[in-house]
C-alpha cells in the first residue's frame, strides 16, 4: 500500500449527485466527488456547511436522500441486484471497507487499548485472535502507543485516545479512512501528535477524506481541497491552487479569516 500506482483503478470513493435534507433544511446538494486510491482529500468550510454530514453519508451513518455512493466500486446503501435498500448485514459488509475517526474518539471504554483495535478484525472479519493481536501491536507501534496496549481508554489523554482510534480504523485495512474533525476536541498541544500520525499515513499511501479546520495540514498533505458552503461544493482544487489562487470570493474571505 505504498505507491500511488493504482490511480487508474476503480476510485476508492465515488459520489454522484448526493443530496440530503434534515426536515426542511437541505444540508447537502448535488455533491459530486471522486477520491482515487492513495489520495488525501481535505474538506473545509464553516460550521454548518455540511462537511460532517457529507462524511457521514459516505459510510451511511446518515442516509442520503438522493444520489449514489460507491466504495471501491461497490454501491453502498442500495442492493442493486435486488433493487432494494441494503439489509443491516449487507450494509455492514460495505462499511467494513471504510474506517472512521470521530471528533470525540468514540473508543469502547470497557475494552483495553489493544482490544479496541482487535475487536473488529476478530468479530467482523473472523480473523484468528493471534493474527489480530499481531496486527494490532504493529498498528499501535505505528501510532506510537505500543507501550499502552493494556491500558484502558479512561487513563489516556485526548491525543492518545485519538491515536488509538486511528489504529482501530486501520485494523480493518479499509479502502478509505474518514476523519471527522479529528483534532477539534484536543488540547492545542495534543493536536500535533495526531496530525503527525495522519501525515505518516498519507505518506504510506492510505486514502483519506479529512474534514478539518487545520489549514496547514490541508495545505501540506492533501491532493485535493474541497470547500463546502451551504451544502454545495463551491470549490475543488489542488492545495497549491486553492490556497494561493482561489476562484471564489467566499473562499478568499475564508482563507483571510483563517490565516
Amino acid at each position: 500500500m505504498s505507491e500511488h500506482t493504482h490511480a487508474s483503478d476503480v476510485p476508492a470513493v465515488s459520489i454522484k449527485k448526493m443530496s440530503k435534507s434534515f426536515g426542511d433544511i437541505e444540508v447537502l446538494r448535488d455533491i459530486d466527488l471522486v477520491v482515487n486510491k492513495g489520495e488525501v482529500v481535505s474538506v473545509l468550510g464553516s460550521s454548518g456547511s455540511g462537511k460532517s454530514t457529507m462524511l457521514r453519508c459516505i459510510n451511511w451513518l446518515e442516509e442520503p436522500d438522493r444520489g449514489t455512493i460507491h466504495i471501491a466500486g461497490q454501491r453502498i446503501g442500495v442492493n442493486e441486484h435486488a433493487g432494494r435498500k441494503m439489509t443491516g448485514k449487507e450494509l455492514a459488509t460495505v462499511r467494513a471497507k471504510t474506517g472512521m475517526v470521530f471528533q470525540g474518539f468514540n473508543l469502547w471504554p470497557h475494552l483495553s487499548v489493544i482490544q479496541n483495535v482487535m475487536e473488529a478484525p476478530i468479530y467482523v472479519k473472523g480473523m484468528p485472535k493471534e493474527q489480530a493481536r499481531a496486527i494490532a501491536i504493529e498498528l499501535l507501534e505505528k501510532v506510537g502507543l505500543a507501550d499502552k496496549h493494556n491500558a484502558f481508554p479512561f487513563t489516556l489523554s485526548g491525543g492518545q485516545k485519538q491515536r488509538v482510534a486511528i489504529a482501530r480504523a486501520l485494523a480493518m485495512s479499509p479502502e478509505v479512512i474518514l476523519f471527522d474533525e479529528p483534532t477539534s476536541a484536543l488540547d492545542p498541544e495534543r493536536v500535533g501528535e495526531v496530525l503527525t500520525v495522519m501525515k505518516n499515513l498519507s505518506a504510506e499511501g492510505y486514502t483519506m477524506i479529512v474534514v478539518t479546520h487545520e489549514m496547514e495540514f490541508a495545505r501540506a498533505v492533501s491532493d485535493q481541497v474541497v470547500f463546502l458552503e451551504k451544502g454545495l461544493i463551491i470549490e475543488k482544487a489542488p492545495p497549491a491552487q486553492f490556497f494561493t489562487n482561489p476562484k471564489t470570493e467566499r473562499v478568499r474571505k475564508f482563507l483571510e479569516i483563517s490565516a
Partner: peptide, 21 residues
C-alpha cells in the same frame, strides 16, 4: 450513540455491536 456509530462504522452488525459492545 457515539459508541454505536463507531461499531457500525467498522462493519459490525447490530447483533455483534449489542453482544460485544
Amino acid at each position: 450513540r457515539e459508541q454505536k456509530e463507531a461499531a457500525l462504522a467498522c462493519g459490525m452488525t447490530s447483533g455483534v455491536f449489542f453482544r460485544r459492545i
